[in-house]
């Protein structure tokens, strides 16, 4: 008789599945990734080989780093839509400055706008409390304006891609893409920062309950400013990597990565409302999106259809995660 009181009611399968998804989001994500690869293999037998994997990794890495920017900003309840412009600016400045400057100077010049835009974003969001979406959209418009003015001044000097970035972007070492030399430390640093350092905990704290964080002595604006500067820096580095991969400097180089980077972080289980998520899921999310893009290319889906799909993915996944949290 009393056993029914003390024993918890056996949860239904659906509930257990939901709880499982909420506790270990990585496992269903990896399963989804494997399913996608399997579909690809069925549609084009023999496509999945060593070269394809290296190629997928090459394209997934810039996306994953940008999605890292989104993950960290989303943990605080924000978003950074300026990453595309920042990456483009760094790439374009690097490619044009390397012609007349030595690499170190060119690198510093390329990272300068990244840090500046990050700083302005951080001050706008942290001090003036502008909604991050509006703020980063605004700075990205201003950044694009600056880039257009800058392009006029360097139109005569031409552009070139430094050998080092070429090597980093497209080279292979023992079948592994060289971009991993950059990505593995960056990813390790992000994961370490989020899980093991005070700064990482502050990000979760601010996103989970800003008021509580503030009352326990967190300097909100300092955390947010540092966060957006880091996000800008990462986006700038991604730009350098991406120019080595694409090899054609243009004024809209990294723009197509912005929407997928948001989608990758959302798919990876990071809550767009803040406080929940992590970088490992985002990496898998970036891989899923890259494989999905290959799949859609094979199915000859036009760019417009892809964007529609990404939009629905963001909406559906957010709604699903919301249900999972409400159920608990």
């Amino acid at each position: 008789m009393s056993s029914s009181v003390t024993m918890p009611e056996p949860a239904s399968f659906g509930r257990r599945l939901k709880r499982f998804m909420a506790d270990r989001p990585l496992i269903p994500l990896i399963i989804l990734l494997i399913i996608l690869v399997a579909i690809l293999q069925v549609l084009r037998p023999g496509i999945v080989n060593e070269r394809w994997i290296a190629n997928t990794a090459k394209f997934a890495i810039p996306l994953a780093i940008l999605a890292g920017c989104q993950t960290m900003t989303m943990l605080t309840g924000g978003i950074d839509l300026s990453v595309g412009t920042v990456a483009t600016m760094s790439a374009f400045i690097m490619a044009t400055q390397i012609v007349n400057q030595n690499p170190t100077v060119a690198f510093i010049l390329a990272m300068l706008p990244a840090v500046l835009i990050g700083l302005v974003n951080g001050i706008g969001v942290g001090v003036f409390r502008v909604h991050p979406l509006i703020m980063t959209l605004g700075t990205s418009l201003i950044g694009t304006g600056f880039l257009q003015v800058y392009q006029r001044t360097v139109i005569a000097s031409g552009a070139s891609i430094p050998d080092f970035l070429n090597w980093l972007g497209t080279g292979l070492t023992y079948g592994f893409p060289n971009a991993l030399f950059l990505f593995v430390p960056v990813a390790a640093l992000i994961v370490f920062t989020l899980n093991r350092t005070g700064f990482g905990r502050l990000l979760y704290a601010v996103g989970d309950n800003e008021r509580a964080a503030r009352l326990s002595g967190v300097r909100y604006w300092q955390v947010i400013t540092a966060l957006y500067v880091i996000s800008g820096l990462l986006a700038g580095i991604t730009g350098l990597l991406y120019i080595g991969l694409i090899k054609a400097p243009s004024l809209s180089l990294a723009e197509p990565l912005v929407l997928p980077s948001v989608a990758a972080a959302v798919i990876g289980g990071t809550s767009i409302f803040g406080g929940r998520g992590g970088y490992m899921g985002t990496i898998v999310g970036a891989l899923i999106l890259t494989v999905l893009t290959t799949l859609l290319t094979i199915l000859q889906m036009p760019e417009g259809g892809r964007r529609i799909l990404f939009g629905f993915i963001v909406l559906f996944v957010t709604a699903a995660y919301l249900r999972i949290i409400e159920d608990r």
Binding site: H131, G304, G311
Partner: peptide
């Protein structure tokens, strides 16, 4: 969906942009 307006309209921003390209 009870998803906040800012996320829903961000998603429809992607969708409408895609539809315009189609």
């Amino acid at each position: 969906t009870r998803v906040p307006d800012i996320v829903v309209t961000l998603a429809t921003l992607f969708v409408l942009q895609g539809a315009a390209l189609l």
